[in-house]
Simulated scan of single mutants.
Amino acid sequence: MFRLIRLEYLAENLINTINDFDEFLEQFRQTIGSKSSEVIGLKSIAAYRRGLTIESIPKARASLRFNQIKQEYSDQKICLTDKILIDFLLGIALDIAAENKLPIQFHTGFGDRDLHLRFSNPLCLRQLLENPRWQEVPIILLHASYPYTKEAGYLASVYPQVYLDF
């Protein structure tokens, strides 16, 4: 059996069960960095949660947000929509993907009705795509990036690590 790990879903489950940020990070890293042959890739819905402009976030800032989220949702199931924590975790996931030669699928374009469509434009990924740390990570843009199909085609034509799912 093969597994595609959904990053935000994994983070939500871990946040709901772990109170310490360092322990949370360790479990997140262990799960996506598993050398198991069943893990064949990673998947992100960052476009639907806070957008595809992924920024580099310091650990201290992510830790602070983790603790604030834990307080705010102390007795509720968490739906992770915090851009700071999502961006930080995507940086970790991209580093692990580069190390383990795993592809990452990104939902792009139209999706959930509560998304901000302009932030799901795959062109928002350019900073990520040009980062030398992650240029070997295969990036798969899902759902033809509709209505940004032309933009996704452009990215796939100029960045050799980008693939487009039609």
Rank of each mutant, 00 (worst) to 15 (best):
F2K: 10
R3S: 13
L4W: 09
R6S: 12
R6K: 06
L10I: 06
L10C: 04
N13C: 07
T17I: 07
D20R: 08
D22Q: 11
E23C: 06
Q27N: 12
Q30V: 06
S34T: 15
S36L: 11
K43H: 13
A46H: 10
A46K: 09
A47C: 08
R49G: 02
L52K: 06
E55C: 09
E55W: 01
S56G: 00
I57Q: 06
P58W: 00
A60G: 00
A62T: 04
A62Y: 05
A62V: 03
L64W: 08
R65W: 02
R65E: 13
F66M: 07
F66I: 03
F66H: 06
Q68S: 13
K70D: 00
E72F: 15
S74C: 11
I78W: 09
T81M: 07
D82N: 11
D82F: 04
K83M: 01
I84H: 01
I84C: 09
F88G: 01
D95E: 15
D95V: 09
A97L: 02
E99N: 12
K101E: 14
P103F: 12
P103Y: 06
I104L: 14
Q105N: 07
Q105Y: 09
H107L: 14
T108I: 04
F110D: 02
G111I: 10
L115C: 01
L117I: 15
L117R: 05
S120E: 02
N121S: 15
P122D: 02
L125H: 02
L128Y: 01
N131Y: 10
N131W: 12
R133H: 12
R133K: 15
E136D: 11
I140R: 10
I140M: 10
L141F: 13
L142I: 02
L142C: 13
A144T: 10
S145H: 05
G153K: 14
Y154F: 15
L155S: 05
V158L: 00
P160I: 00
P160S: 12
P160C: 03
V162A: 08
L164Q: 06
D165Q: 14
